[in-house]
């Protein structure tokens, strides 16, 4: 029982991180029908930004997190403007291939400055609480709690604000959104900024939980978060969160009972089966047809 609770905590921590990253994929896909394969690398840049701020400026956690999020948000907007916007009328495949290229570019740009893995300095002291034989670290509480807060803020923006309305309207039929007086390019920039900032938050928290970081750390984590977004129903914000927790639950569950080398094989196999059964993902739905 204690073992089960302990593993649940681990799954919640990992799931929070997957969910934060998956949101970036799903938001961009929702409005542009573009799979932004560079997004996992934005998560990596977020981790390195936090590392740089902490190592060279010596800032504490909160300003480090905020500056990392702001810097990566700006980078996300810049990438969209320079690399994706010129291709908006081109076949979607061109933009997807460009995204892959941008990702490789970011990895190798980071590699120039960080040829060896870096060790993340401690941003805040870790407290360990034990209840019976269950142990809970302050980092776990922070990661799960902060992720939850960020997800609730995002959900509020998407469901309750005018910006969120505009994003959902673009997802439905972007061509006519300008007729509502909405500057579509600014909404797209805001979407990239928000997705990238969430990715950077995940990168910062990830580096705190697993403190050895390297320029390729975003590749596998990014793929997993992308799959989490697809499992939840890509384009659906709540689906991305659900997918993140499901993927982490399966991964931790498999690793708890079987050798860790089986982990990705079994969890990805299960997800493939799930997608055969529900090709639109868990919360995705074939959209309502217009009359």
């Amino acid at each position: 029982m204690v073992y089960f609770l302990q593993q649940t905590l681990n799954a919640l921590q990992l799931g929070s991180l997957y969910a934060l990253i998956a949101l970036g994929y799903t938001m961009v896909y929702g409005i542009l029908r573009l799979i932004n394969f560079a997004h996992g690398d934005l998560f990596m840049v977020g981790a390195f930004a936090a590392f740089g701020i902490a190592a060279w400026l010596g800032w504490p956690f909160v300003p480090t997190l905020l500056l990392s999020m702001a810097a990566v948000a700006a980078l996300g907007v810049l990438i969209e403007r320079l690399a994706y916007k010129p291709l908006r009328q081109a076949p979607k495949m061109s933009a997807v291939i460009t995204a892959l290229g941008v990702g490789i570019f970011l990895e190798h740009l980071m590699l120039v400055f960080n040829p060896y893995p870096r060790h993340m300095p401690e941003l805040m002291p870790v407290h360990l609480w034990t209840v019976g034989r269950l142990s809970l670290s302050s980092h776990q509480v922070l990661i799960i709690g902060l992720s939850l807060v960020l997800m609730l803020i995002l959900d509020w923006v998407v469901m309750r604000t005018k910006l969120g309305l505009a994003m959902r309207a673009i997802a439905w039929n972007g061509r006519i959104v300008p007729l509502m007086g909405v500057p579509v390019n600014r909404v797209i920039s805001a979407t990239f900024a928000m997705g990238a900032a969430l990715g950077a938050a995940a990168g910062t928290l990830y580096a705190m939980a697993y403190p050895v970081i390297d320029p390729y750390m975003g590749v596998l984590v990014g793929w997993k978060a992308f799959i989490a977004a697809v499992v939840g129903g890509i384009g659906n914000v709540r689906g991305a969160v659900l997918g993140g927790f499901i993927l982490a639950g399966v991964e931790i569950g498999v690793a708890a009972f079987l050798p860790t080398t089986y982990r990705d094989f079994i969890s990805f196999g299960l997800l493939l089966v799930l997608l055969v059964v529900r090709p639109h993902g868990l919360l995705g739905r074939p959209r309502l047809e217009k009359v």
């Binding site: 959902r168 439905w172 039929n173 007729l179 309502l288």
Partner: peptide, 10 residues
């Protein structure tokens, strides 16, 4: 616009 342009899931 032609076809009314209602945003269906808003």
């Amino acid at each position: 616009p032609e076809g009314r342009g209602i945003f269906g899931d808003l």
